[in-house]
Design a protein around this nucleic acid. Structure first.
Lengths: 271, 271
DNA sequence: GCACACCATTGATCGAGATCAATGCCCGCT
DNA sequence: AGCGGGCATTGATCTCGATCAATGGTGTGC
C-alpha cells in the first residue's frame, strides 16, 4: 500500500516536472532518461521506435506513424523488486507493457494466503480489466521497466486502431489458454510435475532474450514459486533438490538454474 | 472423438438439407425448428431477434440490422449431455454462444487426470482461441442449446463491427478474472472453501433466469464438480454432507440444492 | 419387472505435502 | 569485523484429502 502511494506521488510530481520516465522504490537512475511535454517530442517517439520489445509487444500491431500517437502519452517507469504496479480493488486506471524484467500478479485471502496468478516478462501486456476495479494485484519481481498507458486514452487508441484491439484480444486468448494450463497444474499435478512444468514454462517464455540458452535466471524467490504453484517453500526447495539429484538441473547460486536435461523435465512434467 | 465425428457429419448433412437447427446425441426434436437457405430468411433473423439471450450475449452489442448479418450464418445446435462441442487440439473452426443449459470446458492429462476449467451458462461465449487449435475441450453438461458461428466468418463480422470485438474483449477480461479466482481456489483453498465458493458462483451466475431464487439446479455430476474444484467425488460428497449438517443447504434429490444460508456459505468460502 | 451401468454416499486406511523446527548462507548495515 | 534479517535447505511429525472398498439409489433398455 505504502509502496503505491509513494509511486503515485512520484508519478504526479514527475508529470509536473515534465519527465516521462519514472523511478520508484530503490531503482537507480537509468541511462535512457528523457523529457517531454504534452505532445510527442522526437525523443519520445524514438523511445517507442527504439523500444527493445517493439516487435514483441502489442505495439507491434501499429506502424511507425501510429506508434507516434501512442508515444504521446506513454510513461516509462522503473520499479524495484516488491513494488506494486497496482493493487486488487484499486480503480483500474492504467495498463502496462513490460519492457524489462518480470512482473507477477497475485490475489490474497483475508488471512494472508496468497496465490500468484501469473508472471509477465518483457513484451507482455498487463492490466486487462473489465470492470472499474483491478481484479488482482501486480508487483515487480526484481527490478523492472514498464510502459504505462492511461487506460482511458489507451481505450481511445484502441477505438482508432482496430488492429491493436484485435492484437489485444489475441493476447487475452493466449493468457486465457495459459490460465487453463495453470488450473490443470493446480488442480491435478503433483509437486514434481508442477515444478518441472514451471521450469519449462520459464525456459520457453524467456528463451528469446536469454544470454545463455541453458541458464534460467529466476527473478523470483522460492516463496514466489511456491505461491505460484500452490505449494510451500519447503516443498519447492525439496523438489529442486530432487531435480538436482536426478541430474535434470544444476544450481548456480539460488536464482540461476542450469538446465541439464530438458527431456528429464518434460518427463517429470507429465508424470 | 466419435461424438464429434457424429456431430460434424450431422452438421454437414443438415447444411445440405438446408436445416439450420442441428441435433446431436440423444437430443429430442425441438419445438422451434426452422429451415433456411444461404441467405437470411425472415425466420432466421427472427431466430436471433427472438433469442432468449439476445440481451445477455455478445450479440447484444449489435443493433437489429447488424444482427441480421450475423443471423446469416448462425447455426442453432442442440447437444445432449456428454457430447463435445470441440476437443483440445482440434482446429479451432467455430465459436459458440450458449443459449440454454451449461457447457463445461476441460483439459486432460495423458493418464486420464482431468481438470474442468470452466462452466458456461446461457448467454456466455465459448471458444475464444488464439492459435490454430483449441487449447481445451468443451462438452455439454446436460442437454444444451448453442449458436455456432464459423470462426472465419465470425472474425469477419468482428472486423466490420468493432463494438462486438470490444464486447468480446470485455468478455475475455471477465473470464480472465474468473480464471484468477479459480487459481486462488485451486492453489490455496480447503475443500470446504472450494465447495462453498463454487455454490456461490453458481448461485450468482444463474440468478438471472432461475425459477426459484433459492434452488440451484446443478447440471453437472459430483465427479464434474470434483474435477472443477481439484478434489475427488468422495470429498465433494462428504463436504455436501457437512454443509447439509451445518444447515447451509438442503438437498432435493442430488441435482437440486436449496440454499438455506448464503451467509453460512460465504463464511465457509473464506475460512 | 429385471439387469445393468452409473452415480452418490459412507467408512477405513494411506500418503503427499503441510507444518513445525533448526541450521546455514548471503548481503547490507553499523 | 560483527550483527541482523531474509531466504534456502533439511529433518521430524502431522493432517487433510486421496485412495480403496462396500452399499444403496436411480434411470434406461430389454
Amino acid at each position: 500500500m505504502s509502496h503505491l502511494d509513494k509511486a503515485d506521488t512520484a508519478l504526479f510530481m514527475s508529470q509536473l516536472l515534465g519527465h516521462a520516465l519514472e523511478m520508484t522504490g530503490t531503482a537507480k537512475d537509468t541511462s535512457c532518461g528523457f523529457s517531454c511535454g504534452d505532445t510527442a517530442l522526437p525523443s519520445q517517439v524514438d523511445h517507442c521506435l527504439q523500444c527493445p520489445v517493439r516487435d514483441l509487444a502489442v505495439c507491434s500491431s501499429l506502424n511507425d506513424d501510429e506508434i507516434g500517437q501512442l508515444a504521446q502519452f506513454v510513461v516509462g517507469q522503473e520499479f524495484s523488486g516488491g513494488h506494486d504496479l497496482f493493487v486488487e480493488g484499486d480503480p483500474a486506471s492504467a495498463v502496462y507493457t513490460v519492457t524489462e524484467g518480470a512482473v507477477k500478479t497475485h490475489k490474497l485471502m483475508p488471512d494472508g494466503r496468497r496465490q500468484i496468478t501469473g508472471f509477465f516478462f518483457a513484451g507482455d501486456f498487463v492490466g486487462l480489466a473489465h470492470g472499474e476495479n483491478c481484479a488482482y494485484s501486480a508487483e515487480a519481481a526484481g527490478t523492472i521497466r514498464v510502459c504505462r498507458f492511461d487506460r482511458k486514452r489507451f481505450d481511445h487508441v484502441l477505438d482508432e486502431f482496430p488492429k491493436m484491439r484485435s492484437r489485444l484480444l489475441s493476447e487475452a486468448s493466449d493468457e486465457l489458454a495459459a490460465a487453463h494450463n495453470q488450473m490443470l497444474l493446480l488442480g491435478r499435478k503433483t509437486a514434481k510435475e508442477r515444478l518441472a512444468t514451471f521450469l519449462l514454462m520459464v525456459d520457453q517464455r524467456t528463451a528469446q532474450w536469454r544470454k545463455d540458452e541453458d541458464v534460467l535466471e529466476l527473478p523470483m524467490t522460492r516463496g514466489d514459486i511456491a505461491d505460484y504453484l500452490g505449494l510451500t517453500t519447503e516443498t519447492v526447495s525439496r523438489t529442486f533438490t530432487q531435480f538436482r539429484s536426478a541430474g535434470y538441473i544444476a544450481a548456480q547460486g539460488t536464482q540461476d538454474v542450469k538446465v541439464l536435461s530438458r527431456e528429464g523435465l518434460e518427463d517429470a512434467a507429465e508424470g
